[in-house]
Design a protein around this nucleic acid. Structure first.
Lengths: 238, 238
DNA sequence: GATGTCTAATGGTTTGACCATTATCGACAT
DNA sequence: ATGTCGATAATGGTCAAACCATTAGACATC
């Protein structure tokens, strides 16, 4: 019937006030908080307590702390860094498996490709074709081009995400790609055949996006991820 | 050619040592760290510095701090709570619009439903049908049942996510649902017609999952989300 | 045996000092 | 006039010692 009375600790109160000001828009990215010795007066806490609060905000990725004169706490632009870090922790602790990651990608990349097809500007399409050409170049470099090819492949996928114009897709996919690398080395049966098939998939996706055919782009992207994942599962211990 | 020399701050060093011990397995979930006054000796730092480190670890979700005698820092089971929190921050930061959120759901729920159809156990299906019956009940309660219906609707979606057996889907969808409520109140043209259509969609999805028809489940779920989103966009200011 | 009270361990907070880093500005050489 | 170097002061990083607040467990009381 009654809720537990929550005794807010002083530093939590400080965290909440600053966080709320950021969310609500009073504190804009790039702007700077007063110095610690000034802030502690405004909040009426000791410097130690204030610093614990700042550490929490820093860990949340909301502020960045600089030393030296004119230093202080700077409000950060929101980004995917901490999201990646958290996902990495889950992966290291086996709460999220390779299969989970793969399935998740499969579920999302179709939607991303479809949106990209709808919203791509001319310059985006040009950049996409350029990346495709770069990837093709790496394909002909034999073994030493493999890593570069994979990197380019990833750039193409991230370009598609950005073209979707959806910040949520962009951020989440960034985190997934950042963390899926761990598996590439161990689970992927590297070979020219795989890379070649991959390249053809990418060509299909880019073609569909260029034609602004959302449904074809969706299917091409889903098929691509599915085939790629199948390869990884075939050889579960490299 | 050379990397910037990173001057580790004392509290960062403490964070890294403890985190590494957790990851590597020396510190197991449920076990307890020594008291602050003891720990500060072991690390050779002041209590203030140690506490900043503990705050960071707490914010990462790695430890939980209890007061009182026999209190201290307890190693937590790794979970996805902080990932949700971070995603929630992103969503609330205006960088993510209702449209972004809606598109994202559309991309995900199809995949979730398909996986659920593949992996559902008998008891899951029973629970799903029970929830459907509850939703139908709320449908006949008129205006006062609307909120309950939406809540049940959400439970059905979360059940599907759990049935997918994919922790990533579960966590991400949790965050999305937790944060989409802000929009429901303002953007949704509440009405019996909407709820009824929604209910039919749910029936379709559950039927497809029960038949273990992954593709039908995927399409039903995607269509459901798409229709629901269309409603929200129709009336953009409640 | 149930209930209340005391105690000691432990986290929470404060104060004041000093160290480390760095933007800024002025002196000086060119 | 301009560039270079060094002093300066503002600001974050760290330390130390004390006291307050909370709580599990021991102990006393009924």
């Amino acid at each position: 019937m009654f809720k537990t009375v929550k005794q807010n600790k002083a530093y939590q109160d400080v965290v909440e006030q600053i966080q709320e000001a950021i969310m609500e828009g009073s504190l804009k990215p790039g702007s700077q908080l007063p110095a610690e010795r000034e802030l502690k007066e405004q909040f009426g806490v000791s410097r130690g307590t204030l610093r614990e609060a700042l550490r929490v905000l820093e860990q949340k990725g909301l502020i960045e702390i600089r030393t030296g004169v004119a230093g202080g706490s700077i409000i950060r632009e929101v980004n995917s860094e901490k999201l990646s870090e958290n996902l990495g922790l889950l992966i290291r602790n086996r709460l999220v498996s390779l299969r989970d990651l793969a399935e998740f990608r499969e579920g999302m990349e179709g939607g991303v490709a479809a949106l990209a097809a709808t919203r791509a500007r001319e310059q985006d399409l040009t950049a996409l074709h350029d990346l495709l050409a770069v990837a093709e170049g790496h394909l002909n470099e034999g073994r030493k081009g493999w890593d570069d090819f994979v990197r380019t492949d990833e750039q193409i996928h991230m370009s598609l995400a950005r073209m979707s114009g959806n910040q949520l897709f962009i951020t989440v996919l960034e985190s997934v790609y950042y963390n899926i690398h761990i598996y590439y080395e161990n689970y992927l049966p590297w070979g020219t055949a795989l890379l070649l098939e991959n390249f053809k998939d990418l060509q299909d996706i880019v073609a569909a996006v260029s034609a602004r055919d959302a449904e074809r782009a969706r299917e091409a992207a889903q098929g691509h991820v599915r085939r790629f994942n199948a390869y990884m599962e075939e050889k579960p211990a490299g």
